[in-house]
Amino acid sequence: MDSSNDNDISDHISSVINQFLPLLTMNHHRIYGYILSLLPVRADADDIMQEATLIMWKKFADFKPGTDFVSWGIAIARNLLLNYRKNKYYKVLHLNDEAVKMIEAKSESFIQEVDRRMDVLKQCVKKLPGRDRLLIRLRHEYEMPVKIIAERLGKNIKTIYKSLARIQDALARCIRRTLVAEEWR
């Protein structure tokens, strides 16, 4: 294979990546959201997302431009999740079939709303007290494990989890209130 062929191939790959990357970047959170809703264990959901991304990359030639990239990605993720759920270790600490079925039934509307919710979330986070913002910053920006947060703050893990749950609840309420208010405008 001569060098001109090499260049052609390289250009082709670059072109494909330039199509694939923006689509993935733009829709990553939607596909990941779908996975996370059915597999609410961050590390496992990350693995599935990573695997799904690899498959999407490999099969990107099958994707028809102009069609729904998210649906395509979710279809791939769904198969991976099905396989994952067949794993004998899966059932130990994961959602049961009935719960998964019910979540799946809501997943479409969930995916559709996720962007709006994330927009509103920005405003809601700003309304949190400074201490709460710091806590979620440690958790999400610095990805500090709860155990480390607890150690550093001289508290027990349970207290930190309760605080995170309270903050999450406050944000969920804020998003809901804001969305309802927007609908009435």
Binding site: S37, R117, K122, I175, R176
Partner: peptide
């Protein structure tokens, strides 16, 4: 699902909006 959307939001881009 609302809780998960909060988590998704946090994980993706809200962090850049912090201004202590």
């Amino acid at each position: 699902l609302e809780c998960l959307s909060v988590q998704l939001g946090m994980q993706n881009f809200v962090l850049s909006n912090f201004d202590v």
